[in-house]
Amino acid sequence: MTRTLFPVLTVLFGILVIWFLAVAPMNIRVTLDQAARAGGDVVPAGAVERREASTLSLLLNNRSHIAGGYDLDRPRLPTPTQVGQELWKTTGAMVLKGRTWSKRSLIYHGWVTLQSTFWGFLLGTSVGILGAVLVVKSRVLEMSLVPWAIISQAVPIVALAPMIIVLSSQIGIEGRGFPKALISSYLCFFPVMVGMIKGLRAPNAEQLDLLKTYSASGQQQFLKLRVPASLPYLFTSLKIGIAAALVGAIVGELPTGAISGLGARILIGDQFGTPLAIWAALFAAAILAGVLVTLIDRIQHVLLNKMGMRT
């Protein structure tokens, strides 16, 4: 654990430094516009001239204003601290105030997205595993299913999502739960299917011949060899699958006019020009993905260790 912690923290530190430094050039124009409007001393003074000046010259000529870029209400790029504060304001602080499930709480929105993710993951994983089993069992199904599975991933999900919403309400499904889970599973099933096909085909010729010498049935070969041999592959693809399911759930919230969920927060933040809300929702999604992937990783570790497969 400590061995992986150090490199991860080093990279995180590097990202934070770059991010922090980038705030100055990204926000300098907004800062100067605001300062000019407030009657401050800005070089060049005219808005048109400023638009034509390079970012570097603006920074060099207005050094006293750079600090202001780190404290804007609506920055182009918020500082890490601002995002951290916003995250705390919409999560921990809400809990302390007893408003965990308020519409302004990211815990509430995260929970909404998490539910879609869960159902999408469940559906996508089931479809992926079933698809893999069918493909491995039958050459005909392999030739007919695999190309469609690949094509399905080439279709942009953002284009499909509104259609899924419209069609599911057309056939009388109320609410956004089901269509969101469907959109989520659409992204999730593919990595699981690909991983499972590989896993179910992992046994080598000797392992297969051994069962043949016992004149084992096809079902025995499947249950006693192919399934256990596929488990390491399954877990690897489950980790990709759950991250994809989360992305799918968020995408499912974007074009659908949803008002709750992390995707809805991102969209609303964009429409109302509150970048801090977008960034906070973005980080909440990233943290959620990290937690989910780690969770599956732990289950994999415990289960495969118990099965004698060192991970």
């Binding site: 051994l210 069962l211 016992y214 006693k224 060899l225 004698g308 497969m309």
Partner: peptide, 24 residues
């Protein structure tokens, strides 16, 4: 049949590897 490589199933203990043909 004894193969060139022992070909034990890595997810089974030695006892359960020997049990494999008996189960089948």
């Amino acid at each position: 049949y004894v193969f060139q490589h022992a070909g034990l199933y890595p997810w089974r203990t030695i006892g359960r590897n020997v049990r494999l043909p008996l189960e089948i």
